[in-house]
């Protein structure tokens, strides 16, 4: 279980400090937890704090009871946290198979690589030897990014807007990837998303606005209000 306790984060903005997150406390124990909220509300910052890419200004993070606030990105990854980048990183010379092998933590066979790639809707034969470089489209990179998280198979997986850029592939496939992932790891999947169809599978929804947890609860509790609230100022639409 992941627990965030009184997390605040401020980033320097010129001479002043800009507060991005303010006293966020959260528990992630369910199968699918969705974090949603308007742009600029601090969702991606929260995901980076969980992965260890950013260090909170205040507050503590616990994974299965252990205080991991001071642990590095590497140490958190080794303790079972996976993180899918919103904008996947490109590498010259590293092939799709290399990257999936690094994610799995061992040399994988071609057929294993194929399994992960076909789960994200890519024809493995066309991709395993390709470099993860600018020759791949944004959507292809995004799916490979998801495949690296699949290959890790950790107890906690964090996805930052996984739906962005995968328009050619259906949401239903993305959702079935999450379902299969859960069946395999029996862990928690934390998804940052604006998409109703993703919110629709969440066991718990957390709404973040202006750096604070505005509401949280089960899908049944939150989603109807959220949809009605599309006219609410928090969503700005």
């Amino acid at each position: 279980m992941l627990e965030l306790s009184h997390i605040s984060f401020a980033a320097s903005d010129g001479d002043a400090n800009k507060e991005i997150l303010n006293d966020v406390s959260l528990r992630v124990n369910e199968r699918f937890v969705a974090i949603t909220g308007p742009n600029g509300s601090g969702k991606s910052t929260l995901a980076k704090i969980i992965a260890g890419i950013l260090t909170p200004t205040e507050g503590k993070i616990f994974l299965d009871g252990e205080d991991i606030t001071g642990l590095s990105v590497t140490e958190r990854a080794r303790r079972g946290i996976s993180y899918a980048f919103q904008q996947p990183v490109r590498f010259k010379g590293i092939t799709v198979k290399d990257l999936i092998s690094l994610a799995a933590g061992r040399k994988i066979t071609v057929s294993e690589a194929c399994t992960y790639l076909s789960e994200v809707g890519l024809c493995a034969r066309d991709y395993i030897d390709r470099e993860v470089n600018a020759s791949l489209s944004g959507g292809e990179l995004k799916r490979i990014e998801i495949a690296t998280v699949l290959a890790r198979g950790t107890a906690l997986s964090v996805f930052d807007e996984p739906e962005a850029g995968i328009d050619l592939w259906s949401f239903q496939n993305l959702i079935s990837v999450f379902e299969k992932m859960h069946a395999r790891t029996n862990g928690s999947i934390l998804i940052i998303s604006h998409q109703e169809r993703i919110l629709n599978i969440a066991d718990k929804i957390v709404v973040i606005a202006n750096g604070k947890v505005e509401r949280e609860g089960s899908r049944e509790e939150i989603l109807p209000n959220l949809l009605a609230g599309r006219i609410c100022p928090a969503f700005g639409q």
Partner: peptide, 22 residues
Amino acid sequence: LKLMTLGLTEQEAEEQIIKGFL
């Protein structure tokens, strides 16, 4: 950072990036 989120240390990540590049 990406390779570190896969569990590599910074030095291991650097080695993999160079190995791939060359």
